[in-house]
Amino acid sequence: MISKENVNNETPTSTGVVAVKVDDLTVAYNYKPVLWDIDLEIPEGVLMAIVGPNGAGKSTLIKSILGILKPIAGSVSIYNKPYQKQRQLVAYVPQKGSVDWDFPTTALDVVLMGTYGSLGWIKRPGQKEKKEALEALEKVGMLPFKNRQISQLSGGQQQRIFLARALVQNASIYFMDEPFQGVDATTEIAIINILKELRKAGKTVVVVHHDLQTVPEYFDWVTFLNVKKIATGPVKDIFNDDNLTKTYGINYKVSIQE
């Protein structure tokens, strides 16, 4: 059961500007619909969790916003312009399991990849980019590991490297796919502190999140998703039994206890 005391009372720092606007988004895998007619507005400056049961389309939503998946209908705009024109405003932290961690590369190298987007084709990262990458490593507390091969890092450390890579992009909006999955408690705290810092700096952060219990503590905004959008808004207003039941079905209490 979620008690009301846990609810984060910080008022969202939202400025009233809409950072991400999703219109009538429908996505299908093999012509099976996974997301249905999603309308969603994410205000600037919120730290938002996307929650929903397995297979609800949480990752799919992020991936289609980022153009990795092609929706069959609908459109996405970032600060009122189509996503394609606003790419540099967006950073992405994929699921940790989506890459080959045995790849021959170092932590610093991976973080440097965050600068590739602004560099564009062919141009190589130079001293300036390297400095930025080192700063990002510092911020996530991974500087001592910069020359480690990525397979020699723990799960939590790998996740921090991914976060550092996104930080280097110096974006306005951050999308993260289950950043807390399989990480140790210290890393979880470190990551959430960085996310809160980002919010303080006026950035918008969207996180696919699994652990319902920590939602009120970590986030100020939440979207309930299960193929359709169930609800979206401030945690203190809409994070309640009613919406949880609508999203998870009658058994939602079981999934909280897990």
């Binding site: 980022l66 967006v90 890459v99 990849m113 141009k123 990262p125």
Partner: peptide
Amino acid sequence: FWKEFKILLFDADYTKTLGF
């Protein structure tokens, strides 16, 4: 295309989001 090859090999989805 060293940079592009490397990032595609490591993380294709991410490469896409960077606009490559």
